[in-house]
Amino acid sequence: MAEILREIGMIARALDSISNIEFKELELTKGQYLYVVRICENPGIIQEQLLDLIKVDRSTATRAIQKLEQHGFVEKHNDPDNKKIKRIYPTEKARQVYPLIILENNYSNNVALKGFSDEETVHVLIYLQRIRKNIETDWESVKKGNKREY
């Protein structure tokens, strides 16, 4: 039972490492491709929403977004109704690399699920979504400064 999270971690690290190597030529490093995908899929997203989608802390997201901005992948604009809010939009450069990232994602999904039936694939997704939802409760709590009771 305890090995499940280790397996998930190894899978995530391996896929992240592959993506970082393959996307280096696109000037995307250290998981920045995740941000590009979410911003392309949600143009005008605010940083807080992005944090929740990717499950990272504010400082990590701030650094990644700044680097993406410097490399011309995203741009920030003031919200027309609330000047305190900055909305994040993909640039043409991001929209050009987005299909390549999705292509890699689809390929990795196919490799990961090779030999699985359609029914097994559905079950894997359902189980992983349940695991994520269980973890999200602790993530939200710890993010707010609370300690977990072991």
Rank of each mutant, 00 (worst) to 15 (best):
R6N: 13
G9M: 01
R13D: 13
L15D: 10
I18R: 10
I18A: 04
S19M: 13
E22K: 09
F23M: 10
E25C: 06
L26I: 08
L28C: 08
L28P: 06
L28R: 03
T29I: 13
Y33K: 04
I39F: 04
G44D: 03
G44R: 01
E48M: 11
L50Y: 01
L51N: 08
L51A: 04
L53M: 15
K55A: 12
T60W: 03
A61K: 01
R63S: 04
E69D: 12
Q70D: 14
Q70T: 07
H71L: 13
G72Y: 03
E75K: 05
P80R: 07
D81I: 05
N82V: 05
K84W: 01
P90G: 00
T91E: 00
E92T: 02
K93C: 02
Q96E: 11
V97H: 04
Y98R: 02
P99N: 09
L100M: 07
E104Y: 15
E104C: 00
Y107D: 11
S108K: 07
S108G: 00
V111G: 02
A112E: 04
L113F: 10
S117K: 12
E119N: 12
Y127V: 11
Y127D: 03
Y127N: 08
R130V: 01
R132W: 04
N134G: 02
I135W: 01
E136Y: 01
D138R: 00
W139G: 00
W139H: 04
E140T: 11
S141C: 08
K143C: 08
K147A: 10
E149F: 06
E149R: 09
E149I: 10
Y150Q: 10
